[in-house]
Nucleic acid binder design. Structure first.
Length: 254
DNA sequence: ATGTCGCCTCATAGGCGA
């Protein structure tokens, strides 16, 4: 089972990119983030053999899942704050797995209300992860986590020191999730590998010079680790015309 | 501070979020 995750930075602007990715990689499941629009074009993907489920809002955020097999939607909001209307969370069941798609808050600049929202969102997600461990359903979480886990996950730590994605508080929360028992799939297969990124700024020729960060992740519950065969970053979509600033990660599961 | 995208509107330029 091949599962991919990709922050497309507007589904409308990236339809042709996504179609090319599906044709080339033929994933069984694709998680997408930052749809940036109220309407999700499910009709585009049906003829290509994909079921879909989406959580959207106007202008901002938005997450969707494509799957070759039917999707059962379990939850469309992150529990813990009834006032929270951001489209950032989609929990599903696909083929006996819990597959959750998240778009964790960016939180810039540090110290702002947006930063506090990021930390609160991550605290709420911790509680959800805790419940999921307890119920024993094999669980895969994928998405844009907006966290640079370790120094080797960015080209140059000093350039990210003032960025919300690199602050001690969100990084500690990500480590708490790992300490709870979840495995960062990419690091599981590439424990020491440097210069492996999923996001590059549009400016300053960041992609051409590989000055990026690794912020798109797959987390595996303990029961899934032995079933994971590989986890790689596919840089090809980032080389195309008018690309998203992110590129997909891919997980192969037995 | 800046660079570059994509979205939206008190819309064809500028603000916001990333």
């Amino acid at each position: 089972m091949k599962i991919a995750s990709w922050n497309v930075n507007s589904i409308r602007a990236r339809i042709e990119h996504v179609k090319r990715f599906l044709a080339r990689q033929s994933p069984d499941v694709l998680l997408m983030q930052e749809l940036k629009g109220e309407v999700f074009p499910a009709e585009i993907f049906e003829p290509l053999g994909y079921h879909s489920a989406a959580v959207t809002q106007k202008t901002y955020n938005g997450v969707a899942i494509l799957s070759r097999t039917p999707i059962e939607v379990a939850c469309t909001t992150l529990p813990g704050d009834a006032e929270d209307s951001h489209a950032r969370f989609l929990e599903t069941r696909i083929g006996g797995l819990r597959i959750a798609n998240i778009y964790s808050p960016n939180g810039n600049p540090p110290g702002s209300d947006k930063f506090l929202y990021k930390l609160a969102w991550m605290d709420r997600f911790f509680i959800e992860l805790h419940h999921w461990l307890a119920d024993g359903i094999p669980t895969l979480i994928g998405g844009d986590f907006n966290v640079i886990p370790e120094d080797i996950d960015c080209h140059k730590p000093s350039s990210w020191m003032k960025d919300a994605l690199f602050q001690p508080e969100p990084r500690q929360r990500y480590r708490d999730w790992l300490a709870m028992g979840y495995t960062d799939a990419f690091r599981h297969f590439h424990p020491e590998e440097r210069d492996q990124f999923t996001y590059w700024d549009y400016f300053r020729r960041a992609f051409e010079t590989n000055r990026g960060i690794r912020i798109d992740h797959f987390l595996l519950s303990p029961s899934l680790v032995a079933r994971a065969q590989s986890c790689v970053i596919d840089r090809e979509p980032r080389t195309e015309e008018k690309p998203s600033d992110h590129t997909p990660i891919l997980l192969d599961l037995n």
